[in-house]
């Protein structure tokens, strides 16, 4: 049984048919990437999984249970973390408060403290900035905070939306190394990226999304070798 399965998902924004029958699977322990151009529906796919938008039809199965009608708040509690597009740090909460709010569903203060320390170990930079307001961080620091915040609830499945967006190349490498090490420590990851090259480097499998439909799928290396992907997403040769 896969950890996550989407079956023929259709999602609308008003009259716009954003997802036109998406079916995909994510198995436990995998990094799966969803690549595609701007507006292809990558973020919408993640938002449909985390319950921020509701699918009009189709099924989202998480650990075999349908969750397409479960509210976003409850989906978090079931073990799906979402690092949203644009990071969405709470600008007037401190770094530490951002982490604490990430652990909103946890009651045990000791556990919250432990998880905070894990986050600080992962990103020592955040420890240095712990009393600073989230809005004053640099883009890279905000991305670290967004990841650390999502980890506070110790999710099984991590949805990551464009973690490389707007970051300097060095930072992009660092963030993707972190993603890989999170995966090695047991997190399953569904990664949405415009930077297809680096996404396909770390992913086990990938899907290509085009105007709301999946056009290609397969093991990452194989996908990276197909002419279509080369031409459209890897800049060709």
């Amino acid at each position: 049984m896969s950890l996550l399965e989407l079956k023929n998902i259709h999602t609308y924004y008003g009259h716009i048919h954003a997802l036109k029958g998406i079916s995909l699977t994510v198995n436990e322990g995998e990094i799966v990437t969803l690549i595609g151009a701007n507006g292809a529906g990558k973020s919408t796919t993640l938002r449909t999984i985390s319950g921020m938008v509701k699918a009009r039809s189709g099924e989202v199965l998480y650990q075999g249970k349908p969750i397409q009608r479960v509210s976003a708040e409850q989906i978090v509690a079931m073990g799906i973390g979402h690092v949203p597009e644009g990071r969405r740090i709470f600008p007037r909460l401190t770094v530490e408060e951002n982490l604490e709010i990430g652990a909103y569903l946890l009651r045990d203060k000791k556990v919250v403290e432990e998880r905070k320390q894990i986050g600080f170990q992962l990103f020592p930079r955040l420890y240095e900035r712990r009393s600073q307001k989230g809005g004053t961080l640099s883009g890279g620091e905000q991305q670290m905070l967004a990841i650390a915040r999502a980890l506070m609830q110790d999710p099984k499945l991590l949805l990551m939306d464009e973690p490389s967006m707007g970051l300097a190349p060095v930072l992009v490498d660092f963030i993707f190394e972190t993603i890989q090490s999170l995966n090695k420590s047991g997190k399953t990851i569904l990664l949405v990226e415009q930077n297809a090259r680096i996404a396909l480097q770390i992913a086990h499998r990938g899907y290509v999304l085009q105007t709301g439909e999946l056009t290609l799928s397969g093991p990452a290396a194989q996908l990276a070798a197909t002419p279509e992907v080369q031409a459209a997403y890897l800049g060709g040769h």
């Binding site: 921020m52 976003a72 708040e73 409850q74 949203p84 709470f90 408060e97 604490e100 709010i101 909103y104």
Partner: peptide, 23 residues
């Protein structure tokens, strides 16, 4: 307090607050 932090989080970004498990 935790409630206070949640109030501020909702005030600053209601939809992201939901991703934290806040109703």
């Amino acid at each position: 307090t935790k409630l206070g932090t949640a109030i501020r989080a909702v005030a600053q970004d209601m939809s992201t607050a939901r991703l934290m498990g806040i109703n």
